[in-house]
Design a protein around this nucleic acid. Sequence first.
DNA 1: ACAGAATATGAGCGAACATTCGCATTTGAT
DNA 2: ATCAAATGCGAATGTTCGCTCATATTCTGT
Lengths: 221, 221
Amino acid sequence: MARRPLTKPRKIASQSRSRATVDALVEATARILVQEGFDKTSTNRIAEVAGVSVGSLYQYFPGKDSLVAAVIDRHREEIMRTVRKGLAGVFDLPVERAMRKLVAIGVEAHRTDPRLHRVLAEQIPRVGKLKELEAFSRGNYALFRAYLEHHRAELRVDNLELASFVCATSIEALTHNAVLYHPRMLSDGMSGALIEEGARLVTGYLKGKGFVDGGFMKTPA
Amino acid sequence: MARRPLTKPRKIASQSRSRATVDALVEATARILVQEGFDKTSTNRIAEVAGVSVGSLYQYFPGKDSLVAAVIDRHREEIMRTVRKGLAGVFDLPVERAMRKLVAIGVEAHRTDPRLHRVLAEQIPRVGKLKELEAFSRGNYALFRAYLEHHRAELRVDNLELASFVCATSIEALTHNAVLYHPRMLSDGMSGALIEEGARLVTGYLKGKGFVDGGFMKTPA
DNA sequence: ACAGAATATGAGCGAACATTCGCATTTGAT
DNA sequence: ATCAAATGCGAATGTTCGCTCATATTCTGT
């Protein structure tokens, strides 16, 4: 009965089986989010599905939101793993190929558990994870900018900041929307078409400085 | 006391002052959404801010969600008014100018009460308005496609469907993100720069069919 | 085998909310 | 002036849900 008041729910973790409990809880949260929706995702239900009791839940998580946050973190890490893997070598590729690769990576990343991705994307504001998400975006965006600086010679843009924003935003939106809302656009070999178009979009933008009034494009030096 | 049971909350409206009540409720909902957030937006609070009683609220709205839905509809209509106004004459403009105009319209549309727009964008999934939003997107998207068909001769794309998706998605994302998350990008005369870049992005995509391996662009016929 | 720490349990408390219903007040027509 | 319908009121009700705590079970080192 040497029970010191564990009033404030702890977050400190595990020595053996508690690991399993934590995993089960996070896994259950993800499953419920996908299959039953955010509203049905109550602490009691999570515990039930995880096969543990609510009490145990509160041993490791201060509340429902932190459970969802854990799911988000887990998902994001999985995505980053995909991205890092794909990013290898891209830095030294010439623009056209690099862009094609980047769009492909975007598609691939969004394909990581799309149903979960969609729910999370929709419910992130609710959990106050927006800040982290913006940070994440800014990261990609900075990475992109670094690439552009490195390849400045091949480009015909003067404002790299703006160009990074334009490209990163477009690629993100394109892949996000395609995967989540137009899945049939990616069935069969169609995904190649999207990648091709996306790459062409940003490549043209980066390499072609604009139109002279007749409809001509200039060629990079 | 000829009181027939009004149990089921009605939605039928007004003959005079009830109009004011309904307006006050919707207006209060919008104000609370912006200033206090979705979570604080309870029926009681809405009634309080609107200066009416909860009972009256339930006379006209079956519940909190329908209030939010009303706000959404109202906002969307305002946006559509802006868009329609801007769209006049665009249909017959040549590609480059049309695109510039379209991006400008996107910026303008998102500037309609950006704070409300942001909250709504974040909370729409919660209210089950996603279907309508998708329909709305598809509308713009169809409009865009119609434009492309009309100007097919000036273009160098073979898949109009795909091209519409690429352009509409990019413009939407660009303007949305710029207005809501990078407001300083539009202060001063900077908005011109964004419009210029966005227009160049899609125009280049539509008119330049792609690259030959050396980095050349072809010129439209 | 034993003690104490770690972990697990789940009924139940309490706060927040949505919603109702009996009644009061206003409006519009006669 | 009078009445019925429309509108408005808000204390009271019921439900949902997060969260706690007294207790039970398991684990680890000795």
